[in-house]
């Protein structure tokens, strides 16, 4: 029975995604971390700093998009670690010596990471509602939110696959996750950018997290969105394409090593 290349590419991607899914629940540390950390940050901001920060709305309503982004970004960055682990162990080499598209390994990590992120994000929305988050979004807005978050997660997932392919040790891959933890702080995620010093303000206004957060906030609680939606799609759409191409190129170059 001969089946097309396309069939096997899908089948391999499916098999590897199944493996990543098993990993999520058999080593739940990273899932717990991807949920626990953002929840801790959210609770801290809402109850400790929230009263002192002037945002024009209930602080919890203001901060949820930022927390979600921190959660998803950190969750994605963990992919770099698992990709590096597969390379340092022999799995990656064995797959490359087999007659299949070894990119299924990357697809597995990307979908696995996406599912972990989806679980974490849902839990965080629920906790947020528990501590007073009241979104005004309707069905259409929710679809927009899901779409944007998916775009954000997929683009970062591929970026971290590429980073995982470059890094030679698990420790370095670990270090690559740190920027994702602090980048949201230098955006409008937790405090309005106007309150920052001018130079930081300029950076915060122009980094991709800010339009994403502003768009999510607009969709969730009805603040003005302006051209932020388009900026977001432009930023993360490009990141998705670039990261994907980058991963494929780095992957192919392994042969020259």
């Amino acid at each position: 029975m001969r089946k097309s290349k396309f069939y096997w590419a899908l089948s391999d991607g499916w098999t590897m995604s199944g493996r990543s899914l098993k990993h999520i629940f058999r080593e739940p540390e990273s899932l717990l971390m991807a949920i626990g950390l953002p929840v801790a940050i959210m609770v801290m901001f809402v109850y400790i700093f929230g009263g002192a920060i002037e945002t024009g709305t209930e602080y919890v309503n203001y901060v949820v998009p930022g927390v979600i982004i921190t959660c998803a970004g950190f969750g994605s960055s963990l992919i770099a670690i698992s990709v590096t682990q597969d390379m340092v162990g022999g799995l990656f080499e064995r797959l490359r010596s087999m007659p299949l598209l070894p990119s299924s390994l990357m697809v597995g990590h990307v979908t696995g990471g996406f599912i972990r992120n989806a679980i974490a994000t849902t839990v965080i929305f629920l906790v947020a509602i528990l501590i007073g988050f009241r979104p005004s979004a309707g069905l259409l807005e929710w679809l927009g939110i899901i779409g944007l978050l998916a775009l954000f997660m997929f683009s970062l997932n591929w970026l971290f696959v590429a980073i995982g392919l470059i890094t030679k040790s698990v420790e370095t891959a670990n270090a690559a996750t740190f920027p994702m933890l602090f980048l949201p702080y230098v955006s409008s995620a937790f405090v309005p950018t106007e309150t920052m010093p001018t130079w930081l303000h300029a950076f915060a206004d122009n980094q991709p997290m800010t339009p994403l957060i502003e768009t999510l906030r607009g969709l969730l609680i009805g603040t003005p969105i302006g051209n932020n939606a388009w900026l977001t799609i432009l930023w993360f759409g490009s990141l998705l394409i670039i990261s994907f191409i980058l991963s494929v190129v780095i992957f192919k170059r392994k042969k020259k090593e």
Partner: peptide, 12 residues
């Protein structure tokens, strides 16, 4: 190929 370092999946 069976490489120098075992390429089995520890969690499975």
């Amino acid at each position: 190929l069976t490489g120098q370092y075992a390429s089995v999946d520890e969690l499975l």
